[in-house]
Design a protein around this nucleic acid. Sequence first.
DNA 1: CGCTGGATTGACTCGGATCAAGTCGAGTGG
DNA 2: CCACTCGACTTGATCCGAGTCAATCCAGCG
Lengths: 239, 239
Amino acid sequence: MQNRFIDKLSHYVDLSADEVAALTRATAVGRKVVAKTDLIREGDRPGPVFIMLDGWAMRYKILPNGSRQIMAFLMPGDACDLHIGLLAEMDHSIQTITSGRVATISRTEMDEMLDQHRGIARAMYVAQLADEGTLRAWIVSMGRRSSLERVAHLICELFVRARWSDVAEAAFEVPISQIILADALGMTPVHINRMLRHLRTRDIISMRRGSISIMNPSALASVAGFDENYLHRRARLPA
Amino acid sequence: MQNRFIDKLSHYVDLSADEVAALTRATAVGRKVVAKTDLIREGDRPGPVFIMLDGWAMRYKILPNGSRQIMAFLMPGDACDLHIGLLAEMDHSIQTITSGRVATISRTEMDEMLDQHRGIARAMYVAQLADEGTLRAWIVSMGRRSSLERVAHLICELFVRARWSDVAEAAFEVPISQIILADALGMTPVHINRMLRHLRTRDIISMRRGSISIMNPSALASVAGFDENYLHRRARLPA
DNA sequence: CGCTGGATTGACTCGGATCAAGTCGAGTGG
DNA sequence: CCACTCGACTTGATCCGAGTCAATCCAGCG
């Protein structure tokens, strides 16, 4: 049974056997969670760091007028902010999209790990920089891309991120409903549907209730104008 | 002569005299820069961490079609990412908006400082979390706020962030042109102009070539639906 | 004193939202 | 096993916010 968190960090930095052991220990216990569970809510006082071992989640915020904006997706191997414990309260909520498994690491445990294992600290910091790059790329999409490009770009990003810590599969399935896509991209479900139809009639994707499958990744990337640079999948080699 | 970087970090965490001294030493030398200087460009291999001692800057990206998207503003006291040195290459550029002064801290110097001074490390991590919160708030604005609200929200944020590490002034001036506002909010300068006119006729702001002054902050916040929570100006007290 | 780049304003267009009516698939309880 | 229900998806008609295009103004500057 693989641990996608360790897989992901190993991609950034070559971890020592010690470090892998420490990470394995820290993420050994995983709590099962069903879909649509809030892992933490806006206004809550942050608890331990948590890590998605399995299943997808999202960061989101509900506005006073009731509309929702999704700001990030967490997939297996992704963690919430390392230093989340320094905050007085959360400025957004995190909810699971699918069922899955979540590990938690207490603040002191995390601090010790970062202190004693330089490789782990390095890898986690690179992961955090990649997360920030993803947020910035999201802003670029919302500001300066057409709705078709936006949809294609997000699906493309999810495809690349998921396949990385995942076994490569020919047709990849993204467990995201059209409503979630809409709230992530600042559009209406109606218009998302039309853009997806567009991609479907070109045989780039196919759709099922609650998920989207990528049939032709390179065509998708071309529609999106996708450049994976911002994901920083190769960190700088040690100076 | 004040050091706004230290001012800002002191707001997050009570720094010891030692820590203040270390920060003072690290940011003693400031290079003067004129407006519209690229401090670092997309694709560059990152160098030292840098800190805005004086003047404003922005993070931005130019798309293949030539359009620009601004993703963040840096103002006095703000720093680029702490661990920027871990990346193989930059995924965006940073350019000064006004003239100003910039300090740089080498990677090894930074690592030592974070190791030896827990307070500095804490404060910097909180600052980074606030930056991330700001990125997420930006996404919320672009996705789910009307253009008038978006404009008001951004001006409001800049007002709050600037006044914090700044002396409180009644009418605050933001050194941002309408073109920059447009590229930050994913709109056209024409439309920005119309929204600003709207705010001006209500005596909420006033405008000059290249800058905007806030006359009535609370009316502005009310138009924007502004909630400063995401700026995390009060970190959690030590557990 | 003319040049340049921001700011301003009006006329027109169009992408995406809104409104409205379905369809379809997966649970759920009887 | 079937009827019901609920939530996601689909599609068409219409509307409006914001973009586009174009002309002009204006301040600072070489």
